[in-house]
């Protein structure tokens, strides 16, 4: 009996390891390639992290550098090219600005609305909730075209506003927070009123602290979605590189270099993927719980 059981466990592990190998394959390819010299990439040699033998940088000699000056380590060359060939710092900064602004504005709009829907009786509340539920069904990507036209008419394409504006109201955020606020006892709000708090004080000082788990779940959901979003920036940012978000920058890298500079490109991909992956590895439980919470509500 015990023997059969362990055989079963072994089989499960074997299946899951096979899956894990396939899941991790591109991560391995990405990181490994970002460590290798062009020659190693072309021949498929160099093992996991490349031999790290010095090689001569062609672009450096073309610019008149001597052989000795232009000897570089592949890993350093790949990563330094990632930052010098394109303003990658700028892209990362844009990514941070856009994701942070979107989340801040979403919270600012969604939390009071969710509180009103959950705890205040006002004329048209049921209709308002119906509207939110209806909007939940509209994927913003699907209506990209009309939103783009509106922004174009307002002359707002190629601006931070274009990157941020369509996302400031999240029906999902409102709904999620409302579901959470529903579970907060009315007595807490009544007590706060008796203590002399106004509606705003109640929202930000009583409701929000109790809803931190929901807000965190929403934050993870929102940040992951917008840091990685490629579709929307691709539409509204045309040409102005100073407004590129990280995915746009990587896409440009691919387009520019015609696919021969795999080392620097993989270095860029690694840099773009790393922040979220590291955050995830550090706080997995939070992330998984957050995604689950936002998924199941």
């Amino acid at each position: 009996m015990t023997h059969r059981f362990s055989a079963r466990q072994t089989l499960a592990h074997l299946l899951l390891i096979l899956g894990a190998v396939i899941v991790l394959l591109p991560f391995y390819v990405m990181i490994s390639t970002s460590f290798k010299s062009p020659a190693e990439i072309a021949t498929g040699t160099g093992g996991v992290f490349g031999s790290q033998a010095l090689f001569t940088d062609q672009s450096c000699t073309n610019l008149g550098g001597t052989e000795a000056d232009c000897l570089v380590r592949p890993v350093i060359d790949n990563y330094s090219q990632a930052f010098t060939k394109a303003p990658l710092w700028r892209y990362l900064l844009n990514g941070v600005i856009v994701t942070a602004s979107i989340f801040a504005l979403q919270t600012l709009i969604a939390v009071p609305a969710a509180y009103a829907l959950a705890k205040l009786k006002f004329w048209g509340r049921d209709a308002a909730l119906g509207l939110v539920l209806f909007c939940l069904l509209i994927p913003v990507h699907a209506i990209a075209l009309p939103i783009y036209l509106m922004l174009a008419k307002l002359g707002l394409t190629n601006s931070y506003a274009a990157l941020i504006a369509p996302w400031v109201v999240s029906a999902f955020g409102i709904f999620l927070m409302r579901q959470f606020f529903m579970t907060v006892p009315d007595d807490l709000i009544d007590a706060a009123s008796m203590d002399g708090m106004g509606e705003f004080a109640i929202i930000w000082r009583v409701m929000l602290p109790t809803a931190i788990p929901a807000l965190l779940a929403f934050a993870i959901f929102s940040v992951v979605a917008h840091w990685n979003d490629y579709f929307w920036p691709r539409i509204v940012i045309t040409g102005d590189r100073s407004l590129f978000t990280p995915p746009l920058g990587l896409r440009e890298f691919k387009g520019d270099l015609g696919g021969d500079f795999y080392g620097p490109m993989m270095a860029t991909a690694t840099i773009i993927a790393v922040p979220l992956v590291v955050a995830f590895l550090l706080a997995q439980r939070r992330f998984i719980d957050g995604i689950t919470l936002s998924g199941m509500k």
Binding site: G19, A20, V23, F27, V224, N228, L250, I272, Q284, F287
Partner: peptide
């Protein structure tokens, strides 16, 4: 396994598409 299988959800699809 949970962590490994969830990694692709976190990583930028565009970046991973290019890697693929």
């Amino acid at each position: 396994y949970k962590t490994v299988y969830f990694l692709p959800v976190m990583a930028s699809l565009l970046a991973m598409a290019i890697v693929w």
